[in-house]
Design a protein around this nucleic acid. Structure first.
Lengths: 219, 219
DNA sequence: ACCTGAACACCGTTCAAGT
DNA sequence: ACCTGAACACCGTTCAAGT
């Protein structure tokens, strides 16, 4: 199982191996020993190329963002801003536990810089002040990361235990409906509205509100 | 150090102990053995009261929310919505790593239900449809959790290593300013705007945009 | 310069055994 | 019913030793 010793260990190949382990075992199952085994080495060997596990997670964060693509220029800043949000979400959903990996990690990889540069360019061209453009960009990434983080984690112990998402949602609805109506009239009345909408709908709702709020700045 | 054996172990006292360990050691340092030691028992004893560590984290999530208070009724739904967001952020910032604990955990504790019930009541009274009220409530919690999550995690390896937040931010600004201006004209030009604003300002910006976007629905 | 073996100080969880 | 001791299968990290 050991790699041919002529092929030296590199940070790139450690990152690729870590990505495969992440996909297979999830973030909780990602250990130095498993990453080492994936490249046919001992755990201790990794420490020659990498300071610690945290640095492997940094590499992983960069790898997740690596295939980000810029949305086409339509001339409509609002549509482009929405599209940026949708693509970022899709990118995070594409890799297992990606939102958790990226969560509070600031990457200054070339891909991230290119995306940020392009985003700021479009917002300034649309007429936003420098300060507002910078804040609007930060707002988008905070919203998307927060949203996907909730989306990727099981929404209840039941779902974690293996029940399907739909089943878990129905159970949540039952909780709301079973509440005493005199104490919780709104929860009982809105049980369906709280539980039914799927994640795409929820995401889009927030994204549209944010875009509308930004548009109001251009007044 | 052992507790008097007449005082039995309960889930409540386990939760309180876990909260103290969290405050002292952070989420990464929270172990079954340390929680057990905090109540003067063996780690194995906890498993009589609790299914596993995950369930302790659930208790912790409830405990974090436990002292949530409802904002005063001003008759202005927008101001009340903003205040809800600010208070939720303050609550998460008050306990160490609280955002990470709460992150993808759905709590149905009585405090959470009371808050949700009250929030929905105000939004409906303001004229939002049932569906929009439900979505607006979800949006707020997603935004606040995502924001604080980024806020509570070190924004760079430098800060994790002990440098102050201001110092780390200045270093980030230097990164932007040092980029080649022909490749990254916007990043270079907006370096200050990207780095200078403090977290309160960033949070408020997003909150105001979201409230404005919601207001547009009432049109 | 790069990698390994062995060790250290931890984990979460289980389970027979005690009271 | 409730708690313990001891064990199992893991962790991240260090470090002398090998090549």
């Amino acid at each position: 199982m050991a790699q041919t010793p002529s092929r030296a260990l590199t940070r790139e190949c450690i990152a690729a191996a870590a990505l495969r382990v992440l996909e297979r075992e999830g973030l909780a199952g990602l250990s130095m020993r498993k990453v080492a085994a994936e490249v046919g080495a001992q755990a201790a060997s990794l420490y020659w190329h990498v300071r610690n596990k945290e640095e492997i997670l940094d590499l992983l964060g960069d790898a997740v963002i690596a295939d980000a693509e810029l949305p086409p220029r339509t001339g409509d800043w609002r549509e482009e801003y929405l599209e940026y949000g949708r693509r970022y979400r899709a990118l995070l959903l594409a890799k297992r536990d990606a939102a958790k990996v990226v969560a509070g990690r600031l990457s200054t990889g070339p891909r991230v810089l290119a995306v940020l540069e392009d985003q700021l360019d479009r917002l300034r061209a649309a007429g936003f002040t420098d300060a507002d453009a910078a804040m609007a960009s930060y707002l988008l990434s905070a919203y998307v990361q927060g949203f996907v983080l909730q989306e990727q984690s099981p929404l209840s112990a039941a779902e974690a235990a293996g029940a399907g998402r739909g089943q878990a949602a129905r159970a949540a609805g039952d909780v709301f409906r079973a509440l005493p109506a005199e104490d919780y009239p709104n929860l009982v009345a809105l049980a369906d509205d709280l539980v039914d909408p799927d994640m795409d709908t929820r995401f889009e709702f927030g994204l549209q509100r944010i875009a509308d709020g930004l548009a109001a700045l251009l007044g």
